[in-house]
Design a protein around this nucleic acid. Structure first.
Length: 619
RNA sequence: GCUGGUGUGGCUCAGGGGUAGAGCACUUCCUUGGUAAGGAAGAGGUCACGGGUUCAAAUCCCGUCAUCAGCUCCA
């Protein structure tokens, strides 16, 4: 019965672990404990990849050990995108060495060595890894009395598993990048070398992944931003300070206008605070003590012996608080919603700067809601709805996270507890999903963060909804209750896009620069065939401006084909070509940028088409 | 801020101890073209900045700045 034998063999070869009580148990462990469970095959499922990638990390370590015998190893976990291993060698390893390591890994994998597992006591383990100070460091963090060792050939590693049964199963992987990382993620500790890699069960999946990465690189907003002349950074201006070029500024302005209307509809009032406020205020708010290292300060000399320190605002809340204080408030006024496109400055670490995603000066679509404790829930929900309206308009996937009290924080634990619970309650009551980010809150209160994913799957925090009992207390804010009693309002800080900078960056990657009509920097590219058609082009451009559409006339002394090509490459959503026919009949020849198809419309039809497309979105 | 890369005209990049090249873009002229690069001529950089080594540096070394990847941090 050769057929059956063959089938059995396939099953045997592909089985890599078991699922037992919702946990992945590798075959080594299952055999030792006599466990049986649902089999996990070698494929691209989440469970399977976790085992595969973990073992690939070990194979990489084995290869590194073979190439660099003095290598010491820290940890090599599976992460969202593949795996990594942190280690240390006496010789420096660079990008070019990744190929060599990959080759060694393939050589080792060819030997099809079995991966064995055995347990030893912590003391034995310490003896075994006595000359690997990094492994000893790992063990310090393990409370158990016995630990497991995985062994493949002469390479042994302290590990919890699970692992593949045999290293020969590892075939489709790639080492992606090399970087430095602190031991334990603490910048006070020594720096280790970290190599990131990815692995899949088959060739196609690996290829798809690598293709996706290449596509993501093409979408990088820094690259597209330069190509489309949206924004730019210049060394002489300073790191982290963006220049918005005309096209980028037009795009941004469209967003601003859409959002302005959306705020007004929801009862927000525009306000404006100054760029810098006296440091005394930042001391009251707690920013001076808790956020000072991120702030820029300046002094103004009133007289020779009198200098006043000012802090350039890193947030807009203090300005809005002062607006609140400008009048006596009644419970009848609440909720009061102030919003501002607030320019803030934050001294981010140089290494953290990243295109428009992280800059040192940015503009938040910031608002502060002053309300009664009873109104908190409905206000939170209203903001969450607002967020959803905008994110779904742009077809973004996003997730929400509730962040709890950070190490550096102001206010009583009790207040933190109450406000954190208030956020959870609001979300739970409306069946909204969220994750918890322990210790990720702002120093003045817990928050709900809205995170969207960029082209390469990196998550970026955009919107944020922060509950704050502390600032109202520190500034002794109050309103008159119905008994004319003085009551402290609750403050909700919130931003939806987060910042125009980051949001435009994410939008750029999301659409790969091919923005929908309602936010595109230019709505229409006009290509007049000859000079005699310039007048009609200009006439149309003016009419387009009247209905709120920007256009660009491509009438340089280039061939028609060249100008159409240039317009195509500029990613303008709509291209129209004007010649004798169009001028004579007052018609428009439209070229669809994506399909390259052409069709004709009367001028009136065209105008109404553009107007519809621009107005199709309302937040 | 840390670790490791990179830094040549507006952009993309080649070159590399003896005082700089290409393509695109730009300017001018010819061409007035019906849907993805018509032709010709020309201008533009002293090789991020500062210092050092050397007879000689853009090229080697050090520092600074910027930038990239990651750590950390965050809208």
């Amino acid at each position: 019965m050769p057929f059956l034998v063959c089938l059995n063999r396939i099953i045997f070869v592909n089985r890599i672990a078991l699922k037992y009580n919702d946990e992945i148990v590798d075959l080594q462990t299952a055999k030792a404990l006599g466990i049986e469970g649902e089999p996990i095959e070698l494929d691209n499922s989440k469970e399977s990849l976790e085992v595969l990638r973990h073992s690939t990390a070990h194979l990489m370590a084995q290869a590194i050990k073979a190439l660099y015998p003095d290598a010491e190893f820290y940890v090599g976990p599976v992460v969202k995108e593949g795996f990594y291993y942190d280690f240390k060698t006496s010789t420096t390893i660079g990008e070019a060495d990744l190929k060599t390591i990959e080759k060694e890994m393939l050589n080792l994998a060819k030997k099809k060595t079995e991966i064995e597992k055995y347990d030893i006591s912590m003391d034995e383990a310490k003896l075994k890894f006595a000359n690997d100070h990094l492994k000893l460091e790992v063990m310090k963090r393990i409370p158990n009395e016995t630990v497991s060792i995985y062994k493949q050939g002469d390479f042994e590693d302290l590990c919890r598993g699970p692992h593949l049964p045999n290293i020969g199963m590892i075939r489709y992987f790639k080492l992606m990048k090399i970087a430095g990382a602190y031991l334990g993620g603490d910048s006070k500790n020594e720096v280790l070398t970290r190599i990131y890699g990815i692995a899949f069960a088959d060739k196609e999946a690996l290829k798809n992944y690598l293709d996706m990465m290449a596509e993501a690189e093409k979408r990088d907003h820094r690259k597209i931003g330069a190509e489309m002349k949206l924004f730019s950074f210049r060394e002489e201006v300073g790191a982290g300070f963006a220049l918005w070029l005309p096209a980028g500024a037009r795009l941004r302005s469209r967003l601003e206008q859409l959002l302005f209307k959306a705020h007004r509809k929801r009862g927000y009032e525009p306000v404006r605070g100054p760029e810098m406020l006296r440091s005394d205020l930042w001391k009251v708010s707690g920013h001076y003590q808790n956020y000072g290292e991120n702030m820029y300060f300046t002094h103004i000399e009133e007289s020779e012996d009198k200098k006043i320190e000012f802090g350039i605002k890193p947030m807009n809340c203090v300005g809005h608080i002062k607006v609140y204080e400008d009048d006596l408030r009644s419970y009848r006024d609440l909720p009061l919603k102030y919003f501002e496109y607030g320019v803030v400055h934050r001294h981010e670490m140089t290494g953290a700067l990243h295109g428009l995603f992280r800059v040192r000066e940015f503009t938040q679509d910031d608002a502060h809601i002053f309300c009664t404790a009873e109104q908190v829930e409905e206000q939170i929900i209203e903001v969450v709805d607002f967020v959803d309206k905008i994110m779904s308009t742009f077809k973004f996937d996003y997730k929400m996270m509730i962040s709890t009290k950070p190490e550096k924080a102001v206010g009583d634990d009790a207040v933190w507890e109450i406000s954190t619970q208030a956020l959870k309650n609001a979300m739970d009551k409306h069946n909204l999903k969220y994750e918890i980010d322990e210790g990720g809150g702002a120093f003045y209160g817990p928050k709900i963060d809205i995170k969207i994913t960029d082209a390469i799957g990196r998550e970026w925090q955009c919107g944020t909804i922060q509950l704050d009992f502390n600032l109202p207390h520190r500034f002794e804010l109050e309103y008159n209750g119905d008994d004319n009693d003085k009551i402290q309002p609750v403050m909700i800080h919130r931003a939806i896009l987060g910042s125009f900078e980051r949001f435009v960056g994410i939008l750029t990657e999301h659409y790969a620069g091919e923005f929908p009509m309602f936010v595109a920097p230019t709505q229409v590219a006009i290509v007049p065939i000859a000079e005699t058609h310039n007048a009609y082009a200009k006439e149309l451009a003016d009419k387009l401006l009247d209905i709120g559409a920007d256009s660009e006339i491509y009438n340089k002394n280039d061939s028609l084909n060249k100008r159409i090509r240039t317009a195509e490459k500029a990613r303008v959503p709509m291209i129209i070509v004007l010649g004798d026919e169009e001028v004579a009949n007052k018609t428009i020849a439209i070229r669809d940028r994506r399909t390259r198809e052409q069709y004709n419309l009367s001028e009136a039809e065209f105008m109404s088409l553009i107007q519809t497309k621009i107005n199709e979105v309302n937040f």
